[in-house]
């Protein structure tokens, strides 16, 4: 039962992963700092999932990145214009989904 709940929760979180990541990249972040920011916001993500996801979002044209070599060399990611547009669209879609799901769940209770 617990396994099933965990598996269901993982599925739910996987669906909103991209939105969560985009929401934290209005300011530049490197991999580990982003992971920390997400964990502090209540969305812990495994490192092996998050770092490749950043590269995928960049290759999809939603993020820009640059190396900062002033101290420890790190790659910083941030939203570009296309990423901003996508974040806005996904945020709207998410809020619609929340309304829809609330309606469904409330209907079940009745």
């Amino acid at each position: 039962m617990v396994d099933r709940e965990n598996s269901g929760l993982s599925e739910l979180r996987r669906g909103v992963l991209v939105l969560a990541v985009l929401s934290r990249l209005r300011t530049p972040q490197y991999g580990y700092s982003l992971r920390q920011a997400l964990a502090e916001g209540g969305m812990p993500i495994e490192e092996g999932t998050l770092y490749p996801l950043l590269r995928r979002l960049e290759s999809q044209g939603l993020l820009s990145s640059e190396w900062n070599t002033e101290q420890t060399p790190r790659r910083y990611y941030r939203l570009n214009a296309e990423g901003e547009r996508t974040l806005a669209a996904l945020t709207e879609a998410w809020r619609d989904q929340v309304r829809v799901m609330d309606g469904l769940l409330d209907g079940r209770r009745r």
């Binding site: 490197y30 580990y32 490192e47 770092y51 590269r55 060399p73 790659r75």
Partner: peptide, 12 residues
């Protein structure tokens, strides 16, 4: 990827 992954693992 190797450069970035090495840096990320060092941070972790």
């Amino acid at each position: 990827v190797a450069l970035e992954l090495r840096s990320l693992l060092a941070d972790e």
